[in-house]
Design a protein around this nucleic acid. Sequence first.
RNA 1: ACCCGGGUGGUGGAACUGGUAGACACGCAGGACUUAAAAUCCUGUUCUCCGCAACGAGAGUGUGGGUUCAACUCCCAUCCCGGGUACCA
Length: 1180
Amino acid sequence: MTGQAANKVPHGINVGTETNKTQLSNKTQNQLTNKPVNQLTKKMEYNFKAIEQKWQQHWKDTDAYKVENDFNKPKYYVLDMFPYPSGAGLHVGHPLGYIASDIFSRYKRLKGFNVLHPMGFDSFGLPAEQYALETGQHPAETTKKNIATFKSQLDKIGFCYDWSREVQTSDPNYYKWTQKIFLDLFNSYFCNTCKQAKPISELVKKYETKGSSKFTAEEWNAYSKAEQEDILMKRRLAFSSFGEVNWCEALGTVLANDEVVNGVSERGGHPVVKKKMRQWYLRITAYADRLLEGLERVDFSESMKEMQRNWIGRSEGAEVEFSLTPGPSPTSWRGEEQPMKPGASSAGLYPKYKVNDRVQFENARINRGASTAAEALLWEQLRNNKLGYKFRRQHPVEGFIADFACLQKGLIVEVDGGYHNTTEQKKYDEFRTRELEAIGFKVVRFSNEEIEANVYTVRDKIKEIIKDIEVPQTVSASPLSNPVGEGPGVRSLTVYTTRPDTIFGVDFMVVAPEHEIVQQITTEAQKEEIEKYLTYVKSRSDRERQSEVKQITGAFTGAYAINPFNGVEIPIWISEYVLAGYGTGAIMAVPCGDERDFKFAQHFNIPITNIIGEHYNGKEANPTKEAVLQNSGFLNGLLMKDAIGVAIDKIEEMGIGKRKVNYKMRDAGFSRQRYWGEPFPIIWKDGVATPLDESQLPLELPHVEKYGAGPEGEGPLANIEEWVNTPEGRRETSTMPGYAGSSWYFLRYMDPHNSEAFVDRKVSDYWNSVDLYIGGTEHAVGHLLYSRMWTKVLYDLGYIGFDEPFKKLLNQGMIQGSSRFVYRVNANSDINDVIYPVVLEKPLFVSSYYYKDIQEKLDNRKFAGGYSYVNSDDFIVGDSYYDILSKIHKENLPQFNGGSPDFSIQKIHVDVNMVDGFELDIKAFKNWKNGEYANAEFLYEEDGKYICGSEVEKMSKSKFNTVNPNDLVDKYGADTFRMYEMFLGPVEQSKPWDTKGIEGVHRFLRKLWRLFFDEIKGKVWNEEKAIAAELKVLHKTIKKIEDDTERFSFNTAVSTFMIAVNELADLKCNKRKILEPLVVLLTPYAPHISSELWKQMGNEGSVLDAPFPKLEEKYLVESSKEYPISINGKVRSSINISLDAKQPEVEQLVLQNEVVQKWLEGNAPKKIIYVPNKMINVVI
RNA sequence: ACCCGGGUGGUGGAACUGGUAGACACGCAGGACUUAAAAUCCUGUUCUCCGCAACGAGAGUGUGGGUUCAACUCCCAUCCCGGGUACCA
């Protein structure tokens, strides 16, 4: 697959312009493309067109850029982010990174590396599909066409891509492997102990033999296939689950976030709602820690790493479970006889019981911390409603502490053994049982041994018992009429916090409105308010909730949580600022330390507890970690940051929470309800996803006639019955997203034609990870994170031997457009009080000066109060325009019959290519857009020019500010273009495009050419011996070019070449000894002219593989230096001193200097600072 | 709001570890060559002041302060611009 053919250049073309055939011939110097040219030109000028065409053809004919997998050579892998081949083609912004990578590749090649520098196309994607919807053209067709355009544009710039390694993500031969890797993801799970991907078959084996923490092996084996698959799906790295998509009923399709603006579709403005659909996901969250850790090992810019870290959003904290209470007790629990636990009075519960005193409550807590192994084992089986009922452990009941209690059913489970195992203890246990049964509890006992032997049997027994317990009718089934916190499974609220140290400062809780607990805990009294608030929340789109200026909203549920450390009752609120998807969807609010909590407390008049003393001023929250805690029980006197760990330890000890790491990052959605993407190799049957066998890949995208969505929001593929329905079941109809193909493409380049594997292991071991990756920052999180994850999975599965895809990342800056404007005067027409601009028959354009002037005058009038439409038949604004315009250029103004015309001035983008600097090319403008402005009139500046306005904007076709690289290449040549793009400034910096300076670079190349050829005399280089000054120029240049290239400072490298050529021209140096190495140095930057000059000088072989000139420091060594002498840091004079001079002799010489003497005015200097090879400073 | 960048002539930018600020180029001005144009070459070009000139004086890298013999460079404060993220608990 090679690029579009460049125009064939006839053999033996003379690259110099042939103007005088009577001149002498020189056979050796004109052997181009291996055929001698007998005619020597008189005038040898730099004919870049012929040179570039010839060499591009030559490179193509000789496969000059073909890269072999030659394991004996040191390798270097340079990669560009491959482009999406859009219909608009390349603009000057695209090649910036490509040129940089091309220079570096060529440089490494000269240095003797086997350089892999491939290019390909990210050719699946929405624009082609959109285009297909509009025009009916098949995406494959448009994509093919666009790729051809891109390639021809790229080839003109003279890149050294090995096109034989090209990949296209939409090519079945490529996506076969994307599908295969998907299957690998599907067939793998993340092992939480070894922190890596493993085949899912290993997990199945484990389940079959050992079971898991949730089920036994027997249970597993007894599960149906569907049940097993359900469980496995929860572990697969590529998994399917239900997720919300943006569903637009009117368009009958699912929309990307980008396509939804303010809650309605971007196209058409139709309403968009969230819809649950089965979706594929990648379990990237499993790799969160490794993705973070890997950042330490790669050379990305700090800001890039920071962006990824933010995106992953790791935070360490704790989940804390708060018990709930029905409401504030009439008096504080601190009173001796007050109930002390939620449900302590157990109103409405069966059986009624009471908790006696605080001491016992504390004991219960301590017991929880000191649970036996058997108790812990059993707790695992009972907690989290695993049996369908809420169990508490070490729960105080009627003066006893029950090991486990299910209050709902009145069941108490006791574990005997260990220190319980005495006669006395047995007696006491019996007493306990009697007492508890007396008030209506059922008590069951198990021994430690029993539990340790088989916890599942014990669990099942409990399950049986609990099932059989009849609950008396006193317990209501309705959650909302239930006492708060006592409905089934809602006796506690779990929050996530990064600041458990502030737990004594919790003044309220906030739960996400979507949180399921809300319905269950809301009290009758608050029900209406909560419902009202929920309606309000539903009315607001995601965008609104996020983009709106922060406003405080919320509602009180009527429920309270208990602070486990001091028993304080904490009101529970709901508010949209708490997100259901993050943490537990509930927070503990500490207003003295958190800004949002503070504002919320203020807004709703919630009293604020201060736990940080003077660090809190009552006017704003202080999120410090440095304060010493007060009012904080056992944490008093601790520094907050130290208290975090202490608090978590305590929480864990009490069994009410645990250390927990949270991530902002979500699993990555991997389904698109689209046509133009990789089909999933999955068949659904009875709700079970069955992968295709690898031998059936690629699963090719079927041809469709229509690109519209399928039924129920499915992708277009759902419309093709014969494809969707197979004997084995129904095919998955969504396709993979754009990042599927781009997550691993760098691997395929290594071994693009391998039909056995996506890349041979030996080959990937050789090329290894990408040494230099160049692309824009826009892919900072998406593409880079996904491909890092895929690489880690493929590494885990043993396909490749490295787990980071890109060693070094260089971000090219964006090239912005510099837009140009013309200012058109429109007449305003008023229809029913609505103003419409009307384009005049002979449109009038005013130059920039007038536009500004008019604006200014209008602004003045506005401030003078004359700017009003009110109560007037005349448009005052119109009058003012008219006044101003007629003063400037009366005869140009169109006349209106009846009434004063009203004017407005409209800014119109003009094509920057018609503007020279800021001056509009009137002739070109009149021809523009098929003569739309042919009869335009202009109001020029005083000097008779039409000056355009300008603005820096994103480069885009619609703004007419794009510059096509081809135009510049045609005009100045590829070498000039390449060097100019580099010369603009540092690659990483964004800057507006300005073509103006390109002349300077072009001049430089011509000047270089003249070192070799004289217009009249032809060849001027000679074989003379180089003098010291010339060698110094050369070696100085070698050093600087090498340094600059290594650190990607291409702009300074270009200027170094300019300096070298300027200096050699001044020295009148035309010596081969100097010029030849210079040509090699220049090769990466300007390969065409370098190749030509190399050949012209009679060299065999290609300059592409010439050895990089060796720096010889000896030519740079100097014996003396012109030292600047500064007086008190200000340079006043200079003096030539030998470089090995010592301090005393320098001082002596300096003091003799006239200027120094003048400044000293006869006094002695305080000090003379002499920095060898730098400067001399005299302090007076 | 937070996190990353960045503020240097008329313009793009250079000065890499504190050591002659403004390399290189554009633009502009003047000059040479030319019938003319293009091309090319030469000179000047941070600002202000003095002057015939000077290897004169003063100011100068967003602003204010500091460290240092010496600061575009390091430290503190502050303003502005660009990018990213955004109720993440």
